[in-house]
Nucleic acid binder design. Structure first.
Length: 268
DNA sequence: CTGGGGATGGGGCCC
DNA sequence: AGGGCCCCATCCCCA
């Protein structure tokens, strides 16, 4: 299961990038000097999408994945983070504002009823309006609860990648992602490019033969810590990944997946 | 076919 | 905020 919860993946991310199609924001790192190499160039702001630096960028345009908002929520067309009293509706905005409320497990009527029951001022006319969906509430607390449950959660900033459809919740995450497109770290030996310096370092070990990660159980050594970790599983009697059906264990998830795809699970 | 090694991608965490 | 490292995941290849 991917660890990421910040980004939706829309393509087979496993394939190696086509380096010839990528930008040339590169830093050549001498493989023999990488203990003192300079850092990769940070991509210029203009490579970011138009919304990337907007302080209040909401789920704006009709990118296909916007249709996948949780619980069928619609993209929002504007947002102000402040809670406020009734204000005139946004001028001539004909985009979707039809938040029927049917997406919520707690209906709006229930929210309002709860607000009225819990707030002594609830008997007043409804005068607190959500500036996102124009729903009105008789109490501030009712409005605040509504926004917390429904609107604010949808309207957090998003930072879009110019090169693909991915969106991120922070600019830093976006910048990191953009490096996977620009691949600023280039191996001086073979010209292969990587998104991060330490990826290049690992790659350089394939040229130098350096294997700093040794197995304590045998005399094998590895250039990559993850590969040592996978190797350590082979020394373990109880493998980490177990088939739910036949209880057979495997040292790697990929082996378990192969096992499952081979038909074990359907045979039971 | 299976198991394992090699290589790489990428988000999260920590400083 | 950004760099470096950690960890997980996955693909390819080979024995």
């Amino acid at each position: 299961m991917p660890r990421s919860f910040l980004v939706k993946k829309h393509f087979n991310a496993s394939k190696k990038p086509n380096y010839s199609e990528l930008d040339t924001h590169t830093v050549i790192i001498s493989p023999y000097l990488y203990e003192s190499y300079s850092m990769p160039v940070i991509p210029q702001p203009e490579i970011l999408s138009s919304g990337a630096y907007s302080p209040i960028t909401v789920w704006t345009t009709a990118a296909p994945f916007h249709a996948q908002l949780p619980n069928g929520l619609s993209p929002l067309s504007g947002y102000s983070s402040s809670l406020g009293r009734v204000s005139p509706p946004p001028p001539s905005d004909t985009s979707s504002k039809d938040h029927s409320g049917s997406e919520s497990p707690i209906s709006d009527e229930e929210e309002r009823l709860q607000s009225k029951l819990s707030d002594p001022h609830a008997i007043e006319a409804e005068k607190f309006q959500c500036n996102l969906c124009n729903k009105t509430y008789s109490t501030f607390s009712g409005l605040a609860k509504h926004k917390q449950l429904h609107c604010d959660a949808q309207s957090r900033k998003s930072f879009s990648c110019k090169y693909c459809d991915k969106e991120y919740v922070s600019l830093g995450a976006l910048k990191m992602h953009i490096r996977t497109h620009t691949l600023p770290c280039v191996c001086k030996i073979c010209g292969k490019a990587f998104s991060r310096p330490w990826l290049l370092q690992g790659h350089i070990r394939t040229h130098t033969g350096e294997k700093p990660f040794s197995c304590p159980h045998c005399n094998r050594a590895f250039a990559d810590r993850s590969n040592l970790r996978a190797h350590l599983q082979t020394h373990s009697d109880v493998k980490k990944y177990q088939c739910k059906n036949c209880s057979k264990t495997f040292s790697r998830m990929s082996l378990l997946h192969k096992h499952e795809e081979s038909g074990c699970c359907v045979a039971h």
